[in-house]
Design a protein around this nucleic acid. Structure first.
Lengths: 250, 250
DNA sequence: TCATCTTAGTGTAATATTGACACTAAGATA
DNA sequence: TATCTTAGTGTCAATATTACACTAAGATGA
């Protein structure tokens, strides 16, 4: 970077950044193990002050020749290797003291990825990224919220609330699963995110009645019990129905 | 303003603004007139380029010593005289070319006010503000969208979509009515915003069953027909119920 | 190979919610 | 006092929700 070039304005300007809350879901794998499904968030370890060494949401400065959303996409890829995933704007955090060093306003996004198809670079030159389980019993290890720098705990809470609300009236849960999934995996996903148990028969009845799941004819493999049917979400059909006023409701 | 002071940064920074979509609702007044309810948006006429003379959303630059939300509150008051109203962040618009003169990112807010208690300064020194009816037949006068500068038509559409969605699962419609209102006024409000007719008996049944409307004992006055009962929304009770998982659904 | 273990997959009945529908009551006006 | 306008009310059928328990399939290991 050219050290001597600077940029001058008539009025002061806050710095503008993006931050990404990346949610991942791991369907239960491994033979015969218990529930084994985990809902996680991706954090990176900061290499620079402030909060050097602490965990934080991936993010960075918005550049002049890219849209804010493009900045989120770019930072996500640069810092975690994740790309081509569901990404949606969450909220803009603009309190005066949120960055201790400079006035910084951050546009937060959240991403949904399935851990099967998008393995994350564990630790590259630029960054050290790691998955943290959400909703774990607080006694085992520190609560995520307590180790995050800036107002990133608040951003994470905001993203969680949004996801919990939105998953009930938009079919975004499928973004967290592999293309083909079982109904039990889908149910476990909802149970994890909504943090409450659902009735198996009612859940299946409701989902199948919408007629938005395509039976692939394939079956689950590698499990030590009866193999379940694999389904795909019919995005085309959903879009068509949505146009005509249909609303996906859990 | 001191003309010679400038602000210099190591990296370029987009300008940061706020814009406010102010919705207002006017319950039918006047003796014996027809429906007479109107759903409106407040715009100001621009005094400066770009888009000088055109109508635009009230808004302006975020200052260094105020939060983004505070900037929205301040601009709203300065440009329209409106204060102490419901105001919520909508979305952040960050496309590269959205301001023809400078790279500008705008955090949009939407406000809900009732026209009875918050008459707007029609035209002051600083600004020329006017209400525009929404959902009017497009043949009469130009559609609002076609006269707005910047990407303000997009912001308005976004705000409308948000309001239409949110009014169905949060009791924000009451922000658009006087403190005491009749059930018919409330129904007309919903019909206007959702843009479809609702069944009178079913509407009343549903709302009254929630038990969130306080019968004031007062009655409507100044109408040329049977006077309706006046109700107030019980915000306290709603908050308490919401805590315990209750959800307001139209 | 058979007993065991684990999860898949299925139906019913009671209850609650939704949606369609039309008349009388009250009050102002001419 | 006739007329006009809007307020206010109940029922029934259809649909949606909820609670609930067993058999089926397939892998594993004694």
């Amino acid at each position: 970077m050219p050290a001597s070039i600077t940029y001058t304005y008539e009025y002061p300007r806050p710095a503008l950044t993006v931050d990404c809350v990346v949610f991942g879901f791991e369907v239960g794998v491994g033979v015969g193990v218990g529930v084994g499904a985990a809902f996680k968030v991706l954090l990176i370890r900061r290499k620079l002050p402030p909060y050097e060494g602490q965990w934080a949401l991936p993010g960075g400065f918005v550049q002049m020749e890219e849209s804010v959303e493009a900045a989120a996409v770019r930072e996500l890829q640069e810092e975690t290797g994740v790309k081509d995933v569901f990404l949606e704007q969450l909220y803009t955090f603009g309190a005066v003291g949120r960055d201790p060093r400079d006035r910084t306003v951050s546009v937060a996004y959240y991403a949904l990825i399935n851990l099967q198809s998008h393995p994350v670079q564990a630790a590259t030159d630029a960054s050290d990224a790691r998955w943290f389980k959400l909703f774990e019993l607080p006694k085992i290890g520190a609560k995520i919220e307590t180790v995050l720098g800036f107002d990133h705990a608040e951003i994470l809470d905001c993203a969680l609330a949004r996801l919990q609300a939105k998953i009930r009236y938009e079919p975004i849960g499928f973004e967290l699963l592999p293309k083909a999934f079982t109904l039990s995996q889908l149910q476990r996903l909802y149970e994890q995110i909504l943090n409450r148990p659902l009735d198996k028969r009612n859940f299946r009845k409701k989902l199948l009645k919408m007629d938005l799941l395509i039976d692939t004819g394939q079956q689950e493999t590698g499990v030590a019990h009866r193999a379940a049917q694999l389904y795909q979400f019919d995005l085309e059909k959903y879009r068509a129905l949505k146009q005509r006023g249909f609303s996906f409701e859990l």
